[in-house]
Design a protein around this nucleic acid. Structure first.
Length: 784
RNA sequence: GGCCUCAUAGUCUAGUGGUAAAACGAUUCGUUUACACCGAGUAGUCCGCAGUUCGAUUCUGCGUGGGGCCACCA
């Protein structure tokens, strides 16, 4: 006879999730309470670009910061967790253009920003829904866009303040320049790229002799202003002080001795051009040479018959011409690494333009010291910050020759060159739209056409978010969560700005999360290795996704494996079933009854878990907390305690039942609370269904973080628990080896000392092992 | 070339100066009044070499191999 099939409806996780999402939204569960007397815990949330969909890496890192936010909220803090969006960059500009079918350059900046803001207002709710759906418990009412009026005002004010305190200056100087985007860029926006190229040795002439010079950049020949040799290099001693003739271009340049010329490199002779690289910039300054710039700002050449050609075209044309005039001595293909602009991958140039800079080079030591005052998690991430500062060679170039962005709020008089900063009351302002007279000579001043580097604004997120609410959010914030890829930008620039504006560090702690990888390599949309969190959530649910995100420790990369999502899904099912069991027979009682020994000892184990999880969360070690809770729930609570207590729940005396009920209620509630930061949906579901009527707090997520349950403890508690579970384990093993069912009656033998150690828990032990007989001998199991 | 980081079961990850761990996967049983989205078992592992130590997977050094950052652009 087969048993009747028990058909249970599948758990509808999506229904559960959407139900609690709207409950939290309606109840404003996560809103910051300005009137609260609790201590504030403030988070400088990373504002995502919303021009694209959420990436699995976002889901990973935002989940991790949310674990902390949720823990702190339960631990009694008034959590300030704003949510901004970063809409002030190229990706957003392109997104607005594409969605609206317009071109930024066809209209005024203000007009474009206005259209953009309207579009953002319409689309943002839909786009940040992904963040809500994975359960990010930010206060979405405290929100900003990095292009909105308030932000523009704060960003422009920052510029004006720093200008007033002489930390910002304008200079015409060869700066890192992207010919594709036609704008200067900062050192932090450079990336390495390996390129194959021709390494050509060219015939320079001096006093009738050949002077061979190797180069990968023949297009710069026209810009050659000097030739360097090392004074110690015997081969070229005779040339020092003479002139060299540049092949093809035929102008003559001085041959100078310079220690920086490396004897071993190339031919030992090098040409100095304006400007091939940072070295050239230095060299030309050092020897006070007059630069000859051959590139236009649009990346074309301006000299001779090469006029109008792009750099690449000029390179091959010049090589052809050199070849036909037999001016190439040797040529070989090489691979070398060049700096490219991170946004477009174009090789950068050094071109002299007039730009705005924020002073940072003279503050390196101070900035390192500021970084040291922040507590970094993991600690070694500070090294990256420090190394970056040590390697800095340029002040922060903050002006961009782009159309969309926050305008630089100054005018300049074309006659007397007086710089007129905007007044604070005028902000936000576009100086190209508001005429201004020069205060000195009364002629029409010209509004600056440049915009600010987006980092110049996003480095102000603490100030921006704080401005959104009336009550004071102090700087330093408690926490900055972010990725390690933007330590040199976002973290660094934010530290710069708080130093200059507040003379403070921006936050006490910084947590740096790792990446999601695929086969050890970073995922990338362009390589088609991106995983959409939407599809993962559709299959496994948000809690499972978060459970997975909690499985590696802070700062570590996690290799994506779909199979790993199963663990979270199973956890959800299991805890739901366990809760059903607990409440199937439970009668609630508020007072602690006289506890049966097993229950008291089990609770002592639970107390240890509470302490260690609390400690782990305080150290941002959410993965340890999650692992221990999961382990306890599965291996202590479900596998052992529930099995033990079952017998009493079904067949116990009133006293035995009362003790079991109390213990079940509080241990399950504790496990739920410890899990709540990681899996907020299922824990809320169970809390609301079973606990709320007794607990009175509206949501588990604003309930108190568990404290150890006040019970008596005895010296041998741990030992008894260990021994008891060990015996149960051995009995199960014996039954399994003997291919016996678990409910087969046995005779259990224990030595006297074990029996006396276990005397308090013996009834439960006998029941769970189905030991009908107990003998006093060495541990053995006999089947009856 | 410099700096940082990692190396643990077939896979992905915890962890520890003294017996190495969870999950997935594999495999053997079982269906006991929460759970077949189940339960109970079994097998399987610390990159190599040297040092410190009574004892090293753990600490130190070197090597090898991944990952990252920076520099190198003649």
């Amino acid at each position: 006879m087969s048993k009747p099939e028990r058909k249970k409806p599948q758990i509808d996780i999506h229904e559960i999730e959407s139900r609690w999402l709207s409950y939290w939204e309606k109840g404003k569960t996560y809103s910051f309470d300005p009137k609260s007397k609790k201590k504030t815990y403030s988070i400088d949330t990373p504002p995502p670009y919303i021009s694209g969909q959420m990436h699995i890496g976002h889901a990973f890192s935002y989940s991790q910061e949310d674990f902390i936010a949720r823990y702190k909220r339960m631990a009694g803090f008034n959590v300030f967790y704003p949510f901004g969006t970063d809409d002030n960059g190229l990706p957003t500009e392109r997104w607005i253009e594409k969605t609206k079918g317009i071109k930024s350059k066809d209209m005024s900046r203000n007009e474009f920003i206005k259209i953009g803001l309207a579009l953002l207002k319409e689309k943002t709710p839909e786009l940040i829904q992904d963040w809500k759906n994975i359960g990010i418990s930010a206060d979405y009412n405290v929100s900003y866009s990095t292009i909105d009026d308030n932000t523009r005002k704060i960003s422009q004010k920052s510029f004006l303040d720093l200008y007033a305190s002489k930390l910002i200056y304008k200079e015409n100087f060869p700066t890192i320049y992207c010919p594709e985007c036609q704008t200067p860029v900062a050192q932090a926006e450079l990336e390495d790229k390996s390129l194959s190229s021709q390494f050509s040795t060219l015939k320079f002439k001096s006093s009738g002799k050949n002077l061979p010079i190797a180069t990968t950049r023949p297009e710069l020949l026209g810009a050659c202003v000097a030739v360097f040799v090392n004074p110690k290099d015997k081969r070229y001693k005779e040339f020092i002080g003479k002139k060299a003739t540049v092949p093809l271009f035929k102008h003559s340049v001085p041959i100078l001795a310079d220690e920086s010329a490396e004897i071993e490199k190339g031919t030992g002779v090098l040409m100095v051009c304006s400007y091939g690289d940072k070295y050239d910039v230095d060299a030309i300054n050092r020897h006070k040479l007059t630069p000859k710039v051959v590139f236009n700002l649009d990346g074309t050449l301006n000299s001779k018959e090469y006029k109008g050609l792009t750099i690449k075209q000029a390179r091959s044309k010049i090589l052809e011409d050199l070849e036909s005039k037999k001016l190439i001595i040797e040529q070989k293909p090489i691979n070398h690494v060049v700096n490219v602009h991170d946004k477009c991958g174009t090789e950068i140039e050094f071109l002299p333009t007039e730009q705005w800079f924020i002073k940072i080079l003279d503050k390196k030591t101070k900035l390192i010291a500021q970084g040291k005052k922040v507590t970094w998690h993991p600690q070694h991430m500070f090294k990256r910050y420090e190394n970056w500062i040590k390697g800095l060679e340029w002040d922060w170039s903050i002006s961009r020759e782009r159309h969309f962005g926050i305008p630089i709020p100054v005018w300049e008089c074309p006659k007397c060159n007086l710089v007129i900063p905007a007044k604070l009351s005028e902000l936000p302002i576009d100086p190209t739209e508001t005429p201004k007279k020069c205060s000195k000579c009364n002629c029409q001043a010209i509004g600056d056409t440049k915009v600010l580097d987006t980092w110049a604004t996003s480095s102000l997120t603490p100030q921006i978010a704080a401005s959104l609410i009336k009550s004071k959010i102090k700087i330093p914030y408690s926490l900055r969560p972010q990725g390690h890829d933007i330590i040199r930008t976002w973290a660094f620039y934010t530290i710069v700005k708080s130093l200059y504006h507040e003379n403070q560090i921006p936050w006490q702690d910084i947590i740096v999360s790792g990446f999601v990888t695929l086969g050890g390599k970073a995922m990338s949309k362009s390589k088609g290795t991106g995983i959409s969190p939407r599809s993962v959530m559709a299959e496994y649910g948000s809690d499972a996704l978060r459970f997975w995100a909690a499985s590696s420790k802070l700062g570590e990369d996690l290799d994506y494996n779909e199979a790993d999502l199963i663990a979270g899904k199973k956890f959800i099912t299991k805890i739901l079933n366990a809760s059903n069991f607990v409440f199937m027979n439970l009668k609630y009682q508020s007072k602690m009854p006289k506890l049966i020994e097993t229950d008291r000892i089990f609770l002592s184990q639970l107390n240890k878990l509470i302490s260690s999880c609390t400690e782990a969360f305080n150290e941002y070690n959410y993965s340890k907390a999650k692992l221990e809770t999961e382990k306890f729930f599965w291996q202590v609570f479900a596998d052992y305690y529930l099995e033990i207590v079952k017998n009493r729940v079904y067949q116990g005396s009133d006293e035995e039942k009362a003790s079991a009920f109390y213990t079940l209620y509080h241990s399950l509630l504790t496990i739920l609370k410890l899990s709540a930061p990681i899996t907020p949906f299922i824990t809320e579901e169970i809390y609301q269904n079973h606990f709320k009527s007794f607990e009175s707090v509206d949501s588990i997520h604003i309930s108190d973080w568990p404290k150890p349950i006040p019970i008596a403890t005895h010296r041998h508690d741990d030992k008894i628990w260990e021994k008891m579970t060990e015996i149960i384990y051995k009995v199960r093993q014996a039954k399994s080896m003997a291919k016996q069912p678990m409910n087969v009656p046995i005779s259990l033998s224990l030595i006297k000392s074990e029996q006396s150690l276990l005397s308090g828990v013996l009834p439960d032990l006998r029941a769970v092992t189905t030991a009908k007989e107990l003998e006093t001998r060495k541990l053995s199991i006999k089947f009856l």
